[in-house]
Structures are given as C-alpha cells and as structure tokens.
C-alpha cells in the first residue's frame, strides 16, 4: 500500500539578499498527523510555510504536497491546501457569511453549496450569531476562528496554520486547540507553526524545532522534552552564598549541573520526572541550605532551545523570557 506523504520537502532554501531565512530544511508530514514547527520569532517558520503554500518562490530544494510538485504545479498545490495566516486574512468590508460565501465561489463551489457550507462552518465554529455582523465588530478569537473556517470551505485535505493562537487568551486558545483536533479527527492533515512548546506538546504528533532557518531537532513532544528533562525545578535560596554548595549537591544527586543566576540567588534544575524534585529538596535540607521559594514547571521553549542549540531564543519581548535569558547568560 503506497502512502503518499502530505508534505515532503528536501533542502528547502529561501534567501533574502545575503540572509538565508530558510537554510536547507527537510520536512516529512504523514497523512492524518498534526505536525508542529516550533521556533522563536524570525526562525524561518512562516517563510517555510509560505514557500510550501506557493506564496513565496522556492529558492532551492524541492517540495511536494500529496505528490504534487509545489514549484512546478502551484495551481494544483493551491487546490490541496487551506492556509490560515498569523493575521486574520478575511475581508473587513464583508460579513462573516459573505466572506465564507465569497471564498467558496472563488474556488468554484456553487452558490447554493457555498451558502450551505458557510452556515455549517459558522455553526461548527460557534459564529452563527455573528454571521451577519461586519468583521470589524469581531474579537480577536472570533476572527481567528472565521479565518480557519475560511480555509475549510472546500474541505482541503491539508491545512497550514501559522501561529494559530498567538495573542489569544487562554480560553480561546483552548477552543482553537479543540477545533484543530476535530479537524484531524475528520481526516485532515495539519501543519502548524508555533512559538509555544506547550502548544506543540498539546497538539502535535511530531515536532520539528527550527532555529535560524535550520531544523535542529525532530521528534515526538516527549522525545523533545526528554532532551531537557520533563520538568524544571525552580528554587530561590535564602542565602545566595550557598549557591556553589547547592549546585554541588544537585550535581552529586542527578549527575547534571543546575542553571544558576547568582545575583538573585535563583537556581533551575532540569528533572527527568517531576517526582525527582522531592529528592533534590531533601538533599538540600540535609546539606542545611535554606529555600525561600520552590516551583516545578514544564520546561520552556527557552530551555529546550538552550539544550538543543546552545543559545537561547533571543526573544526578549516577554519579561520572564528576558529574565531567563539573563540567567542563562550568566550561567554560561
């Protein structure tokens, strides 16, 4: 039984002048899976998606969508894809209903079928009450959902989602995740990009980590997290002077160095499993080291990145990420 991959790309390259935004990426997405492309801002995720969606010319390498060559046959490729961008690409001058109807008509769906599908999608996405309202009255979450609905009007077998939940509140984000899962349950293949490890973890069957235009790792979410430990123990010591001793305790117990930030007395310890946290805490008490605060968290993208690439994501927009970055830099 021959199984055609949904996406098959080899050595994809995109250059903007001297800058190689995508630098030789291989990608293989099987039918029916959710494939996550994880990376910080500017890693080349969107550029890669745009090349696969025929929105940017491919400078090097080759790509196939369900066996159709993207570069040679862009028109066929477009018939197999639904693209939902980072920013809602729906028409502000039209209502939700009119938008969906128009996108159906533009793809050769009859007026009647287009209207019926539009109504069905609006209901599925919980937008039926806003069906005849202008888009300008829509919230961010509603726009995103409408945008996704617009990609589904011809029921394409492959959906590209470019950062589907960036900027959404947690509740709307959860709704979006459910919707994406439903799509795949219905037989769709999804290729999504995200900046959140959490999101890739929740949704993706497999993840590629992209950094500076290159694929630095690929695997299931569990494999990826295992590379940095499944969780991180964050500690603040009562006396910052104890840090060296505390680090030695951790090294002896786990065989790994913790990440230190001397000025704040903080210490982050990567753990294979969360219950190892207790062992660390007990050992620290036995060594007579006082602790003012403790938390056990999932690793952040920053930590995965540091582990995989040896440098952080370089994204200082988020204050906690900036703080982490400072810690990491000090530790290096």
């Amino acid at each position: 039984m021959k199984h055609i991959p949904a996406v098959h790309a080899e050595g994809l390259v995109k250059s903007f002048g001297d800058f190689r935004a995508v630098d030789g990426v291989d990608l293989h997405v099987d039918q029916g899976e959710i494939y996550g492309v994880l990376g910080p801002n500017g890693a080349g995720k969107t550029t890669m998606l745009k090349m696969l969606a025929t929105l940017l010319p491919i400078d090097g390498g080759r790509a196939e969508i369900f066996g159709v060559d993207v570069r040679r046959d862009p028109h066929r490729t477009r018939q197999l894809l639904g693209v939902t961008g980072q920013y809602a690409s729906v028409d502000e001058n039209l209502t939700a209903n009119e938008n969906l109807w128009l996108f159906g008509r533009l793809q050769g769906v009859s007026s009647r079928t287009s209207r019926a599908t539009a109504a069905q999608l609006l209901e599925q996405f919980g937008l039926q009450e806003a069906a005849n309202k202008p888009i300008s009255q829509f919230s961010g979450g509603m726009r995103r959902r409408l945008d996704l609905a617009a990609s589904l009007i011809t029921r394409p077998p492959l959906i590209f989602l470019d950062e589907p939940t960036t900027g959404l509140d947690p509740r709307t984000r959860g709704q979006m995740w459910d919707t994406i899962r439903e799509l795949v349950a219905g037989g769709c293949t999804v290729l999504l990009t995200t900046q959140y490890l959490d999101e890739a973890d929740q949704l993706a069957d497999r993840i590629a980590v992209i950094d500076r235009g290159r694929k630095v790792a690929e695997g299931t979410p569990d494999e990826l997290k295992a590379s940095v430990g499944n969780s991180t123990l964050r500690l603040r010591l009562t006396d910052g002077a104890d840090q060296a001793v505390a680090a030695e305790v951790v090294r002896r117990l786990l065989g790994e160095d913790p990440v230190l930030s001397p000025e704040s007395g903080r210490m982050n310890v990567a753990l294979a499993t969360a219950d190892r946290a207790a062992d660390v805490l007990i050992s620290l008490r036995e060594a007579g080291i006082g602790i003012t605060s403790v938390s056990v968290d999932a690793p952040t993208l920053d930590e995965v990145f540091l582990a995989l690439t040896g440098h952080d994501t370089g994204d200082s927009s988020d204050p906690s990420a900036a703080a982490d970055k400072r810690q990491l830099e000090v530790a290096r």
Partner: peptide
Amino acid sequence: EKGVFDRFKSLPM
C-alpha cells in the same frame, strides 16, 4: 495591503 489579499493569493484562482 490587507490580509485578505494573502488569502486570495493562496487560493487556486
């Protein structure tokens, strides 16, 4: 300039 043109470009039209 608007986002909707990105979608027009991605459609087989």
